[in-house]
Design a protein around this nucleic acid. Structure first.
Lengths: 119, 119
DNA sequence: CTCGTTGCTCTACATCGTAGAGAAAACCGA
DNA sequence: TCGGTTTTCTCTACGATGTAGAGCAACGAG
C-alpha cells in the first residue's frame, strides 16, 4: 500500500473524528483547530476529492434533512481502505521514531516514554 | 514554523539516527529499511538538498580520511532548526491522533494506550 | 422573487516526490 | 602511468500534491 501524505492523514483523522457530522466546512474547521494554521477552501476540498478518488473516503451529496440556509452540505466518511491507510501511516511513524538513539531524544527535549513502548 | 513533509521527517530521522555516519548512501539504505520500499537515488538526494537549503540539515564535502574506493562521501547532520522541525512534526502528529474518539481506535485495531498518555 | 447566507466547485500555480542517466573521484592492477 | 572498476553523487525532467481564492449553486427569510 502506498503511504498517505501528512495532509491526507490529517484530513482522514478529522473526518474520522467528526463522525456523522463530517461535512467539508467542519473538516476544515477541525484541521485549523488542530494545526493552529489557516486553511484556504481549496486547501481542504482538493485533497478531500483526491482521497475520494483513491477510495479512502466516500461521500454523499447534500442531505435534505437539515433546515438551514445555504447550499446543502456534502458528507464524508472514512472507508475501510481509509482506516487501513491510517493504520499504515501510524505504523510507519512509529517505526521511524523507534529507531532513534537515546541521545537524539534529549536533543528533542523528549523522554524515552514517547516511543510508544506501552502499546 | 512550517510543517515538514513525511519524506522530510523520515530523512531527518534517518540522518539523526546515523549520527557521524550519515552519508547519502547510508541514509538511503536506512529509509529503505524503515519503509520496506525501494528509493531511487534522486528520491533521496533531491529532498536532502532541499532540507539543506531550508537550513534543517547541514552538509560537508567528502572527507579525505577513509581509504576506500569510489567518490568521496558527503556527510549530513541535523541542525538545531532540524531538531525543532522534528519536534514540531511529532507534536502535530500527537495532537492529530489524540483527538480521535475511542470508537475509531477499534476500527483501527489499536488500543487506547497507543495515544502516548505515558509521555 | 429577490436577497443574504452558506458551502462547494473549479482552475491555476507553487512546491514536493520520483526516476534514472551519467559524471566525479577514489583505488587497483598491469 | 593509465585505463578499469567501484562507489557515490549531481543534474534534469516530469508527475503528484499543496495552496489559494474567485465565483457559483442551493437554500431560507422576507
Amino acid at each position: 500500500m502506498e503511504t498517505i501524505t501528512r495532509t491526507e492523514e490529517m484530513l482522514l483523522l478529522a473526518t474520522c473524528r467528526l463522525g456523522d457530522d463530517a461535512y467539508g466546512a467542519d473538516i476544515r474547521a477541525e484541521v485549523e483547530t488542530v494545526t493552529g494554521r489557516r486553511y484556504s477552501v481549496g486547501g481542504v476540498y482538493v485533497p478531500l476529492d483526491r482521497l475520494v478518488r483513491k477510495g479512502l473516503l466516500e461521500t454523499e451529496g447534500g442531505a435534505p434533512t437539515a433546515k438551514r440556509r445555504g447550499r446543502p452540505r456534502r458528507r464524508y466518511r472514512v472507508t475501510s481502505a481509509g482506516f487501513a491507510a491510517l493504520r499504515a501511516a501510524r505504523d510507519l511513524h512509529e517505526a521511524m521514531w523507534a529507531r532513534l538513539p537515546e541521545l537524539a531524544w534529549k536533543r528533542l527535549g523528549l523522554s524515552l516514554s514517547g516511543l510508544g513502548f506501552f502499546r
